[in-house]
Design a protein around this nucleic acid. Structure first.
Length: 202
DNA sequence: CTCTAGATCTAT
DNA sequence: TAGATCTAGAGG
């Protein structure tokens, strides 16, 4: 199956709010699993209170301030590895969180990693922690750069099948007014997208 | 040191 | 709707 050109660090030099919608429909591949990206979220700048770097430069957030095209993987809720791709120029903390993918190749491997023997592939990777598990991405991939030897992740250009719709980000109610920013994108009408409408309350 | 709040998922 | 599970970052 034909795929587009490989994305390199230059493709991530724009702000995350620009890169995130463009990644909808892109194809990622890692450890024998290939998938189409169907949901992303942007975290942009020191003033974005939902961004981990909003509290300043720390050991954990260091890569967010560094060069773009780098993997920012962190542990969420003590058990889930979430995958981000660093964006924007050096000194400006920004990243795109990959929230959901549709697995097209390597389904059996993905099922195995997810501990789901068979059946519904629809829910195999429709969540930020599910997709890292399916793709075999862990904390030890944190800090790797796209394209460098040893980086298992490849991203290629791809087309969105439906409209690119945006809405509120998920799980960032603590971020005050920043939580209202429409910085989540997904493919409209796509049956696999995690949540058709932004959560309220929660 | 100790404490606590998470960019979640799953089963109940 | 709660429990699993753990670390960065803040406060003493």
């Amino acid at each position: 199956m034909a795929t587009g050109r490989l994305l390199t660090r230059d493709d991530f030099s724009a702000p995350a709010t620009t890169v995130a919608p463009g990644l909808i429909g892109a194809v990622i591949e890692a450890h024998g699993v290939r998938a189409r990206i169907i949901e992303t979220e942007a975290y942009q700048g020191i003033e974005d209170r939902a961004c981990h770097a909003s509290r300043g430069r720390t050991a954990r957030t260091e890569v967010l301030f560094g060069e773009c095209g780098v993997l920012y993987v962190y542990l969420c809720y003590g058990m889930h590895a979430l995958l981000n791709l660093v964006c924007d120029r050096e000194g400006v903390p920004a990243a795109v969180l990959l929230r959901a993918v549709d697995i097209t190749h390597g389904l059996s491997v993905a099922r195995q990693r997810r501990g789901i023997p068979d059946g519904a592939s629809a829910r195999l990777a429709n969540g930020p922690a599910k997709l890292t598990q399916a793709l075999g991405i862990t904390l030890r991939h944190h800090g790797l750069r796209l394209g460098e030897p040893g980086c298992p992740l490849r991203v290629r250009l791809g087309q969105a099948l439906g409209e690119r719709v945006c809405g509120r980000r998920v799980g960032v109610d603590y971020a005050g007014s920043c939580a209202l920013r429409p910085w989540r994108w997904w493919e409209s009408g796509y049956p696999l997208a995690a949540r058709p409408t932004p959560v309220s309350g929660r």
